[in-house]
Design a protein around this nucleic acid. Structure first.
Lengths: 208, 208
DNA sequence: CCCGGCATCAGCCAAAAGGCGGAGAGACCG
DNA sequence: CGGTCTCTCCGCCTTTTGGCTGATGCCGGG
């Protein structure tokens, strides 16, 4: 069987080189290209088509990982996107899966787990780290508390400290709609004010 | 001159291996040991005395980087501690320097910068990434932005998501006073709303 | 084909938060 | 002693936020 080709996307050189070193120990896995940003990832994906794209979600400036995943999926359904990130916030997981990610592996995972995830993703299997899976599982049990993709998106901006007006502009929706989403988010997080929502989101949801 | 010996401390295997690969390209730098936690770092430092300890600040569970730095310094003044982390929150920088760190380098720094930092630390020089240095500088230049004890106390409750009324009750002051403190805090943090204040406090000030 | 979830918007009203100016008491310092 | 901080408090006014009710278009499952 042909080796699995991998495109690495992470804004940190050390992470890329560490990952390359790790994956390099596996005969059936080859790193064919690297990218340090979402923008680079898109061009790299065209020039060096890979079976699996390993992508960090948080990337300095510019396009974030979620957006990059969406674009990649639009451009080609052939490559499986594997999220490789530090945090496992509920909202990020939802958004990443929604954007079309095949798997979600945490950076502190054991090497074997990472290898297995890459191989699995190449075969079209969904693979995720245990903590991620358990979060998803827990969400399936209380569907009432699961944020919709749009709500998660709004929350991720909310915790930046934006006002309703600013949120509306960013998301191209009216302030009225922003309020509606916020009300739903508050209900799901079990809070009454935006301040508490931010506090909960950053702690419980692990968002930044 | 003898090569510089380095002890790597980071809870992420990929980061350690990436760093090892990077540093391995330099003939005058040798990685002599690794540790995945603060506790491991202390024992590793004893068994494998190194010239420089490169340490991440955020480490999953257990002892955090700051605490590890303090302990290391207590045990031996011989090793220079070089902070190697992702974020550059004001509070973290101050705390790290206070704990005895010789330098502060961000994970997205260029390789040459990382090498220079390691060599510098080995020679007892202080080295820090430009963004870090500028933050420190800004703090020294701008004592106006330092929160008073009372303000800091209020802020620590604010980021729990409390309302003005609740803040007043907790601190045994009137809501009017709460508002006054908040106005001062906003000015010092450079924001206009409580939501933004919470966001900034948690990121920039590193509060929880 | 209908229902439910999702996303979008509107209007109304009450509560909370924020901006502004002013002010008094105690502490600390040169 | 006079000046400066810090912490405390007021009132007044505007803006923002949140609660409630209702409505529309879309999509997907039964």
């Amino acid at each position: 069987m042909n080796p699995v080709s991998v495109l690495l996307v992470d804004d940190h050189l050390v992470v890329r080189s560490g990952l390359k070193a790790l994956l390099g120990t596996q005969p059936d896995i080859t790193v064919v290209a690297e990218a340090a940003s979402g923008e680079e990832a898109l061009t790299a994906a065209q020039q060096h088509p890979a079976d699996v794209v390993m992508m960090d979600l948080a990337m300095g400036q510019g396009m974030d990982g979620i957006e990059a995943i969406k674009r990649l999926r639009q451009a080609s359904k052939q490559q499986a996107v594997l999220v490789f990130t530090t945090y496992d916030s509920d909202a990020d997981i939802v958004r990443a899966v929604d954007a079309g990610a095949m798997g979600y592996v945490l950076k502190d995972a054991a090497p074997e787990e990472i290898f297995a995830a890459v191989r699995g993703a190449a075969q079209g299997k969904s693979v995720m780290s245990a903590p991620v899976a358990s979060k998803l599982f827990q969400q399936l049990r209380n569907p009432d508390e699961v944020l919709t993709p749009r709500e998660a998106e709004l929350l991720s901006l909310l915790i930046q400290g934006l006002s309703n007006r600013e949120l509306g502009k960013r998301l191209f929706i009216s302030e009225a709609t922003v309020k509606t989403h916020l009300a739903h988010i508050y209900a799901k997080l079990g809070v009454e004010t935006r301040a508490a929502a931010i506090a909960v989101a950053i702690r419980r949801e692990g968002m930044r």
